[in-house]
Amino acid sequence: MTTLLQLLIGGLALGAIYSLIALGFTIIFQAGIMNFAQGSFMLVGAYMVSYLALTLGWNFFIALLMAIVATVVIGVAFDRYILTRMGSRPVFTVIMVTISLEIFLKAVVQAMAGTDIRNNGDPWGKSGFTLGELRFNTNDLLAITISLVLLAIFFAFFKFSKQGIAMRAVALDYEAAAAVGINIPKVNAITWGISVGVTTIAGVFLAGFPRTLDPAMGDSALKALPAVVLGGLGSTTGAVIGGIVIGLAEVLVAGYGEQVNKVIPIGSGAQQVAPYVVLLIVLLVRPHGLFGKKGVERV
């Protein structure tokens, strides 16, 4: 029972981080783009925080702020100067452009920071407390709290603020939104800003205890993809729920994998692959995700 509770805490924390990453994917998807470079934004942000806070000795929170500013600038510039200029291109072309950004940014990070394992520079580090037999890591608790706060802010913004409503309008019908005078470049910039900012924060938590920071962390963003699809592309609520489910699944399968393996041979490392199996099954049963809508083809 203690093991289960302990795993649930870790799983919830990881799930909260995946929720943020999935939310990042979903927000940009509402602007019509599946951004495979989210992982590299996580990487750039986390490395920047680590460098500013640890190497230069800045205050962690100022470092975090700077990192968010930097990644948002990269993201918005990428949208404005590359994606927008492409005009309407096939989905796959856009995916590949974002992948090329991912490869590029990843190489830049490695060139500047090397491939050594680093700490993310947060002031709480390995701290935490014990309650009975349960261990609570500060990083986990903060990840859950901050995620909840960010999600609440985001949903309030999305639902009530003028810009949030404009974002939804653009997501629903691009042309109609333009026709009623919504400033689409501005809305797109805000969309990218929010998405990349949220992703950067997720990246910093993902590099916190019990995990560390190394260039492979960027690939973790792809783990949120199943969450995005499970929830149905473009559904923010779905992304959050999907993220938590996948975080829990990953930690639980890691914790109980060996016992399960004695009954069903799922192999080692099954926690990494479980979300993708679910992803394929969901796509086969519901080709447009659980909550996704099927587009009508004009004839």
């Binding site: 599946m34 199996v277 796509l283």
Partner: peptide, 17 residues
């Protein structure tokens, strides 16, 4: 069953599996 983006995502899943 799948088109465009969804097929691409499914093939990503295939690689990890």
């Amino acid at each position: 069953r799948l088109h465009g983006l969804y097929l691409a995502l499914a093939t990503v899943g295939l690689v990890f599996i």
